[in-house]
Nucleic acid binder design. Structure first.
Lengths: 241, 241
DNA sequence: GTTACAAAATAACCAATAGTTATTATATAA
DNA sequence: TTATATAATAACTATTGGTTATTTTGTAAC
């Protein structure tokens, strides 16, 4: 029964092919502007064939979103494994989100859109995606806990709540909604500056006051954190008159 | 030509009637689950009649979103007019967002959904909604500027960036996405606690270190800020084991 | 090679719904 | 009472997510 093995493999490949094609389309067009027929045409299959592999359009879309979430989760895991103080891990995770948004803007867009009420919560993939996001948050929470342990993070912060606030703020700041992006750029800031300064802004909220444990930019940079150059007064708001 | 005046008024009333009916439906069902026929049936008009008053479904929806934004803008304006230090105004604005989410959960949901990529940016209402949101942010920026002036807010913060970060964080924290709400409640926190603690968390990021200007909970409470009770250790994470 | 059968793929179809058009009803002014 | 402009509608179109009845293809047994 070797051939049935191969058949199984081929089936998997076909499924992957469909996801790949759909992904290419969703990355460049809005969800509602990509029809199942478009996708079918793109993989050179009949629309009905796609329905042999995916329950519906939402499920297919969710599968793509899950790909993105998994990549993000791996990035978080990598940050956690570094041998650095807790607060630096937190900073690295924020930076990981930023890097993810630069490397995979398509996935980020899709992830955020999937968070909108457009998608039903019954979809079995929704739970899995939620779990994926939850894992990321959990890793962040562990980093915070570690920071409290090594005294680089305020002891009176609740690790769960703090991880939620940071996660939500990361998401909001990096949601590629052009709405905000345009506002930021209209004020003369680059999006990179915007996110960099965000970390600087948040730091006092989490950093412990413990002077002996206070880290300077150099400590962060040595750990691979590159978003630390402070905004020179002449670099900000150049466009404002 | 008195009668043409009345006709005009009647036309306006009919338009309002359509918006009201649509609003009632959108408040309780997802955008995609409300059809133009549903709305038409609800106002007891033919679907085609609605198209005499609104270009399309998006425009009708955007009109409702605009109503919500305008209410939010008024709340912000009221905060700005209070005779309190800058940092208190900022706190009050955060609280205003929270109150808005409690008083008008429907509008909040619609506003956030309108922010998703589902809606085209060409819609003329989109610009107006963006302007409405921008006005709120601008008011917040003014409050920050004032706080820097009266030394209750750190002098080295950029008012524009800070207003963006706060605005985005408010939005994220209060986006009624059940996704987060459920996580928060699963951890044993109420949504009220969750938002309250958020203000406490953010305060160190903006408050100046100036001891003579540091305000305590009482100062805030006297200004109408009610989300200040610190979380008692026994009140948090009751559900955890 | 031929046949039997299961799996994969498809063409043709259905239902819902945003949006349009051709037609009818209604209110007002002369 | 009639002409006319405006408001409203019934009937229609086009798109698209999803389904069904049918055909094609690959594999195993003879």
């Amino acid at each position: 029964m070797r051939s049935s093995d191969r058949r199984q493999r081929e089936k998997e490949q076909r499924k992957t092919g469909i996801i790949d094609a759909a992904e290419r389309l969703f990355f460049f067009r809005r969800y509602e502007d990509v029809s199942m027929d478009d996708i079918a045409h793109s993989v050179e299959l009949n629309k009905a064939t796609i329905y042999l592999y995916f329950e519906n359009k939402e499920t297919l879309f969710a599968t793509i979103v899950l790909r993105g979430i998994q990549i993000l989760g791996e990035k978080y895991q990598e940050c956690m494994e570094k041998q650095v103080p807790g607060i630096v891990k937190v900073a690295l995770m924020g930076q990981a989100y930023y890097q993810f948004s630069e490397e995979f803007p398509g996935y980020l867009r899709l992830i955020h859109f999937y968070g909108s009420e457009r998608f039903s919560r019954e979809n079995p993939y929704t739970a899995e995606i939620g779990k994926g996001y939850g894992d990321c948050r959990r890793i962040l929470q562990d980093a915070i806990q570690e920071g409290i342990g090594d005294k680089t993070i305020q002891a009176d912060l609740d690790p769960f709540l703090t991880s939620m606030y940071l996660m939500i703020s990361f998401m909001g700041t990096l949601s590629l909604e052009n709405r905000w992006r345009l506002v930021v750029e209209a004020e003369g800031f680059s999006y990179g500056q915007f996110t960099s300064e965000f970390f600087r802004f948040m730091m006092p909220a989490i950093s412990s006051g413990d002077k002996s444990r206070t880290l300077d930019a150099g400590d962060f940079a040595a750990s691979g954190f590159f978003l630390t150059e402070p905004l020179a007064p002449d670099k900000r708001k150049r466009k404002k008159q």
